[in-house]
Write a protein that binds this DNA or RNA. Structure first.
Lengths: 258, 258
DNA sequence: GCGGCAATGTACGCAAGCGTACGGATGAAA
DNA sequence: TTTCATCCGTACGCTTGCGTACATTGCCGC
């Protein structure tokens, strides 16, 4: 049984590091970017920019969230960690989404964990403010519900993929999903971490990634992955990637455009 | 590659069969049962009782729904069918839930299919009426969102289970989930169909079910399964069943009670 | 520039599950 | 009672991925 080694470090983030924050640009998050004027006016003043460090845990199973997070250039994995320590990624959230849907869905918590998979920044909003805005039954509610359905599709497809597809196919899918949520073609991600996300052995990832590298689709070295030939990567991936992508595009056209 | 053999028969249901409908009791569906007076008054007059025959397809991927379904004593599987015909169950809906969440989530359709897994009856409501009621931001919206979160947990756990657990463990989980949605201990379900749901070979189910029967946990013959020792079945199941059950109980205490 | 550690490469036996094939059993229909 | 389709049992070779162990390689800090 492969025991997942996961970096657990809790919020609050150490503000004492004298980090140079980038300009305050909540619109980097696409969900925030498409909000109408009125909603922006109400929410943006309360958004707080926070650094998202690799491995940081945004929330643990069963613990109520104090904030929701809108990733800007970071990526967050929702993953379930089993009793024996093995793990599996349920879904991934980037600049197209929001972390903490259980707040407006009404459950307050989930059985899963949210971990920063790719470092960067996010904007966070105190939970009560989001709930209040959601309660207005306006643009925010409409958008968040559609986003939730898209997320739901991603989870469903993850289940299918886990059942039927090879490690190599899943790796392709995973790379593409991550790529869509970043600005360039470079991922910072060791094979060990990818293995934890996919719920497979590290060696399995090594082998699959080796094949992709030999084929000239990607290049990687010590945690830096560069996608060289995205079209061919898409061909290698199983249908799951396309299904999820198509559904996101359909449900959230304004957000996925660009 | 195992090609799933699925009975495809489209609605509208053949009303010409001179079926003797049971008494009109929408409260059999727990979601309907816990609605406040006002909501009942608005919705119940429009509920239509419909027979749910084994294998009937309530909706196909990408096709907009005309109704939502509230199962009474029937069970519906949400499953994804791959391009090559293989399939995998995403979630299961019984008297605790509703089929057609994409209507109020805003997407209108999903990439999955809804199939009757256990015959019986359901109550259906025209889509516009549900949407209108959801828009009131009252008890119905609150309940449906919490139910959706529970469903989401089920999907997530299905993904985990598909990744990490054996066919035998998954069979136990599946039997228990089905059992919770029925009134007695008898399932009418061939191993072939179970295999399609779990996304495994029929032979795999035969072997796993054989072990369970030898151990005295269940008894089955030609599509009739009787659960003899539920406590031990729960012990054999992976943690996934308990996680989902606990989460449903937490999110929907009134509904899951009893 | 060099030790040390993290990241990656490789190898080997093993178990689970797949694809395939076919035989036996059981219930329903004729 | 016989027929027949459906459902279930079993078997065999094969592939994938797991568990384990250990070797190598490149980066970072000293």
């Amino acid at each position: 049984m492969s025991l997942a080694v996961i970096v657990v470090s809790h919020l609050p983030l150490p503000l004492k590091d004298h980090l140079i924050l980038p300009a305050h640009q909540p619109q980097q998050n696409r969900l925030l970017a498409v909000l109408p004027e009125a909603e922006r006016g109400r929410l943006f003043p309360h958004l707080e920019q926070v650094p998202m460090k690799l491995g940081h845990v945004l929330y643990e199973p069963g613990v109520a969230l104090q904030h929701v997070y809108f990733p800007a250039d970071s990526i967050v994995s929702l993953l379930y960690v089993m009793e024996n320590g093995a793990s599996a990624e349920i879904a991934v959230v980037g600049k197209e989404g929001i972390v903490g849907i259980s707040l407006f869905m009404g459950g307050e918590t989930t059985p899963s964990r949210a971990v920063v998979q790719s470092a960067g920044y996010a904007y966070r909003l105190p939970a009560p403010l989001l709930k209040e805005e959601f309660g207005r039954s306006g643009a925010v509610q409409h958008l968040l519900l559609r986003y939730t359905q898209a997320l739901l599709t991603q989870m469903a497809q993850t289940a299918v993929c886990n059942r039927h597809h090879s490690v190599e196919q899943q790796l392709c899918r995973w790379l593409l999903l991550s790529l869509d949520r970043l600005s360039d073609n470079n991922l910072t991600m060791t094979q060990e971490l990818i293995a934890n996300m996919l719920g497979v052995r590290r060696e399995g990832v090594t082998e699959a990634a080796g094949k992709l590298q030999t084929a000239g689709l990607i290049s990687y070295s010590r945690g830096k992955i560069i996608v060289l030939d995205r079209p061919r990567l898409e061909k290698k991936a199983c249908e799951c990637y396309a299904v999820v992508k198509t559904e996101f595009d359909r449900l959230l056209p304004d957000i996925m455009a660009n």
